[in-house]
Design a protein around this nucleic acid. Sequence first.
DNA 1: GAGTGGTCTAGACCACGCC
DNA 2: GCGTGGTCTAGACCACTCG
Lengths: 231, 231
Amino acid sequence: MSRTASYRDIKADIRARIRAGQWPPGAALPGEEELARFYEAARATINRAMRELAEEGLIERKRRAGSRVREAPRRQARFDIPLVRREIEDLGAAYRYALLKSRLAVPSVAIRERLALAPGVRARHLLCLHSADARPYQLEDRWISLAATPEAADADFSTESPNEWLVRRVPFSTAEISFSAVAADAATARALECDEGEALFRLERQTWIDERPITYVRLTFRPGHRVTARY
Amino acid sequence: MSRTASYRDIKADIRARIRAGQWPPGAALPGEEELARFYEAARATINRAMRELAEEGLIERKRRAGSRVREAPRRQARFDIPLVRREIEDLGAAYRYALLKSRLAVPSVAIRERLALAPGVRARHLLCLHSADARPYQLEDRWISLAATPEAADADFSTESPNEWLVRRVPFSTAEISFSAVAADAATARALECDEGEALFRLERQTWIDERPITYVRLTFRPGHRVTARY
DNA sequence: GAGTGGTCTAGACCACGCC
DNA sequence: GCGTGGTCTAGACCACTCG
C-alpha cells in the first residue's frame, strides 16, 4: 500500500488476500491495531474497512475473539422495490392506473390475523390494476387497517393508487416482503389478460408502524416478470 | 438528546423527526456541522448517522447540495440466500443430495452467451436434486465454464453438490441473482414430483470472477416455496 | 482480567458540484 | 470559487466476551 491507503483500498486488499487464500475460511485475521500498523493507517480507517467487509458477509467479528473469515460467505442480495409507476415508466411505457374494486369489508381470517383486527371489524379493501402501454402489468390486492390509518376509510383511490397514497401519508417502521410463484386463478387471469393456471410472480408486503399493522398487499405480476439484483 | 448521544440515537432521532414531518419529503436537512452543534457530537458521529440513513434509502446526500429527505423513500429488501443444505436443515428436515446428470456439453446459445464461451466450446453441465426428508425440494440445473474453472471438468459431483464445491473452491467478485415464476415442464415436474404446468418459484444466479463468467445456475423450487425478508 | 472490536472526539484536508 | 459531504488521523474510553 502506498501512503494514501483509503479504507476502500484496504478493503479491496483484504478481500483480495482472502480470495487468494492467505486467510482461508475460518482463519483469524490480524487485529485492528496490527492491520493499522501494516497499512500505515489509523485504526478508525481499518475499522471502517473491516466493518464493511463484515456487513457484506465476508468476515465475522466478535469483540474479544477478533475477526475471522466466514466459513461460508453469507450471501445476500439487495433488491430495490420501486413504485409500480416508476417501474413502468422506467421501461419506457405509459403508466395507467385503474381502480377495479373499493369497499369496506370484513376480511378473511388470514387477512384479519395479519392486520391484527378483532373479528367482525372492517377494513379497506382495494383491487387495482397497473398497466404499461395499456397492457396489464400488475394486479394489486390490498387491505388497509383503519385502526392504524382511519383516513383510509374516506380516501379516494380512483385516481391515485393506494400505494402512492400510503407512501405520501403513512410512514412505516417495519416491513416484511416475500416473493413466491402462484398459478393464476380465474379472476386474476381475467384482470391480467393471461391464461388461467399460468405461473405468475407474486410479491407480498406488509408494513407496521410501531408494531401496529398498517397494510397488507399482494402484487401479482403479468407473466414473465422477474426481479433482479447484482452484488 | 442527553450527554451521550451515540450515532444510533442521532439516527433514530433524525428518523423520528422525518416521520413526524419536521422535514417533509424533499426538504433539505441541516448540514453536518450544524447537526453536530445541535446534538453536541463530533461531526464524524453525525456523518456516520447520516451515512447510514442514506444507505437505508431514507435520505439523499450530495456534496455541494447537502442532504435531503427522499421524495419516495427508496425501498429495498435484503434477502439472505443460504446454501440449500442449510436451508433444508434449518427447516428441521433431513437433507439429501442426488446427482441426476453430469456431462461435458456444448451449451445452448443462451447459456453460451451468458458464459461468454466461443461457439462449440464445451462446459460442465450438471443436474442435481436437493431433497428434504426424502421429498424433492429444489432442482439445480447448472453450467460451469471450464475457462474460468478448469478443475470442474474432472471434479466429482456425485456426493458433493456443485454449489458447495464452488463455494469452497472458487471465489467470485460479482453475482447477479433473479427471481421469477415458471410453469413446470415435463422433466421438472417429474424431478420435483409435482404436476406439469404447476407454478414454481425460480432463482437464477450467475457469478463472475474479474469479469469472467464462472457459473450460471437455475434453481427451481418445489411448489409453494417463498423467500422472505424483513427490514 | 485482559484483549479485541465499538464508538466518540477534535481537527484537518480533500473532492465534487453548484453558482 | 466555495460550501458540503467524504475521508483520514491520533488518541481515548468503553463493552463485551473469552479464558
